[in-house]
Amino acid sequence: MTMAKTMEPTRRSSSMKRTRRWQTALHYLILTVVALFFFLPVYYLIVGSFRPSSEVLSGLSGFVPTNLSFDNYAGVFDHLNSDATGYFGQFALVSIIVTTAVVAGSLIVNSMAAYSFARMKWRGKKVLFLLVIILTIIPFEAVALPLYYMFSGQRDTVVIQAIPFIANAFSIFLFYTFFLDVPGEIEEAARLDGAGPFRTFFQVIVPITKPAFATVAILTFLAQWGSYLWPVLMVSDPTARPLPLAISIFQNQQPPEWGQVLAFGTMFIVPVLAVFLIFQRWFVASISSSAIKG
């Protein structure tokens, strides 16, 4: 990721240099096309959010930044202006609370379980760990319906949006692979210092396995922030509504307020995008380590 120039050997035939240059130009061309494919929808979202709804769907001119204004943003806040409709800030807060709770809870609970499986000796451990491994293949979607059936009494609460996602078999597995690599001498030293299992774990192990925590935090965050299926089933009340459920309000207008949909979407994604740009290096590192460990 550094900007370092490739080292050009000084003595080369000019024809080789020319091929080189052609190759590089071609490389840039392909890169540009590819980057456009990934970036154009993002650009379209952001530019569209500043344009009148009537011009969002207008062929190629949808890309042209004309008639820019904050009207769509004003429109979103204007629509969500009372307790009856709920507020944008309220939906965002629900999303933030739920995501934070899941990320924090899953870091604590799953790392402890993984540590226990990786480093402690106790009866039944092997069988239970095998069960956990088996559970990694059950997708949440497959149990959504019976889970709804079990907890329909807790509809419209913030807690029920978070709690089913805290314990996660795959996160346990990821932590497990990291903890296996911790040298035994470190724990031994902690034990000789008189540390119990809690102190050993939280004061000795956690600090030296930070990358594991970053990985699980980022993967959990990505899965949770846009969570859609479970809230659709469990939430209707504006006080417990997370951001993804509110998008359709603007789509249902007459005529559809596509500009407001995009403005809402932009506000939904830009903070995440900003965090992502700042921590891009970590993002990449943690995703790659999930594969190497997994």
Binding site: F38, F39, L222, Y228, F268, L277
Partner: peptide, 15 residues
């Protein structure tokens, strides 16, 4: 270029 390619990753499917 890399940043552009990574961007969609943080997009929730609902959006």
């Amino acid at each position: 270029f890399r940043t552009f390619i990574f961007m969609p990753l943080v997009f929730p499917l609902a959006l």
